[in-house]
Design a protein around this nucleic acid. Structure first.
Lengths: 199, 199
DNA sequence: GTCTATACACCGATAGAC
DNA sequence: GTCTATCGGTGTATAGAC
């Protein structure tokens, strides 16, 4: 997890978008989900992909680079899902459904926690975090015109609140907490319905 | 981080609430904040407290138990802060202020991530998560009577949403994301003001 | 492209001196 | 209560054979 050395000498390197390269990235996600980022070692990841662990270094050069490549792939998928939801007929409903169901909530949380301590990952998170707030809110804005007139309700703020609530709701569900989750969902559903009636 | 062995033979053990014991727990929190739970090793933690690392085992028996003791202490403090806020004059305002300012947001996130992969920590999180939703909402309920009549707005749901939003807002702030944070704060402030006017 | 062999650092944990 | 010495295991990373 820490850059040990920086050999200026060129080293043999395989293509990351090969079968084995992709398998290693898949394995990173699987291990993170199961045992957390602390369990991300070359041996464990490669073992999960049934590959020799030295191939991590052949394909990615270091554990850090494998992790970064995996995160970038993960963000790319997330970006597409978010855009699709926000461009749909009822963007708020769609975005809430995506945020609160997300099977990747645990993975997201892991990457966020990791961002607090890994500079490369942090830079990527900040960049995407800012990007997420600038993408096409044209579809969301109309639904909010009534509410906006009354208060300081901006589309971006609404979307982010849905994101936050959905994420932590999912993570807590994964932990086994149930408690008032149904009440929270009812509350958010009610708010979303009010802001975005069927049209 | 994993229980290595279980010596049935009794071993010498110091009191956890001693100066060194407390220093070790402080160091756990500091290391977690700075470098994440993955950096929690006996040597690092003790080094941070300027103590010999074998004292971890003298006072706590294992790294797992040190971690658990630290988490329980952390939860105890959190519990007190939550109760105090919810018993104040304007519980929603107070709870929102506490949730969205929380310097411990990063630490909380780390413990939640850890809960996904450590059974002891997970059990503690679930227990406290359920407890948090059952404590005295008597002070919150009156403020919501108007809103409750209109919709499915329960005190517990409101409080948890504030908790979720405040936590992730804080974590993102710690990462350096600013974006629409002021808009989100304005939105939540407006909601809280409406639900709980000055009285 | 994948393998074995090897380097060196750090890990949790224990035993026993002081 | 704190120290030194020591154990076996695992971590990242490299070199070079096939």
């Amino acid at each position: 997890m820490k850059a040990e050395e920086q050999t200026s000498a060129a080293r043999r390197r395989g293509a990351q978008d090969s079968a084995s390269g992709a398998a290693l990235m898949d394995a990173v996600e699987a291990v993170m989900r199961q045992d957390g980022y602390a369990a991300l070692t070359a041996r464990r990841v490669a073992g999960h992909a049934k590959l020799n662990y030295q191939l991590v270094f052949y394909y990615f050069g270091s554990m850090d680079e494998l992790l970064l490549a995996t995160y970038r792939r993960h963000i790319g998928r997330y970006r597409e899902a978010a855009k699709e939801a926000l461009q749909s007929d009822r963007p708020l409903h769609a975005y809430w459904a995506a945020s609160s169901k997300l099977a990747d909530a645990v993975l997201n949380m892991e990457f966020i926690a990791l961002s607090n301590h890994n500079e490369l990952i942090r830079a990527e998170t900040v960049m995407f975090g800012e990007e997420l707030r600038t993408i096409d809110f044209h579809h969301v804005a109309p639904a909010l015109q009534e509410a906006t007139a009354e208060a300081k309700v901006t589309p971006a703020a609404i979307v982010m609140v849905l994101n936050y609530v959905g994420s932590l709701l999912s993570v807590e569900s994964a932990l086994g907490i149930q408690g008032v989750h149904s009440e929270i969902r009812a509350l958010v559903d009610w708010c979303v319905d009010r802001l975005e009636s069927d049209r």
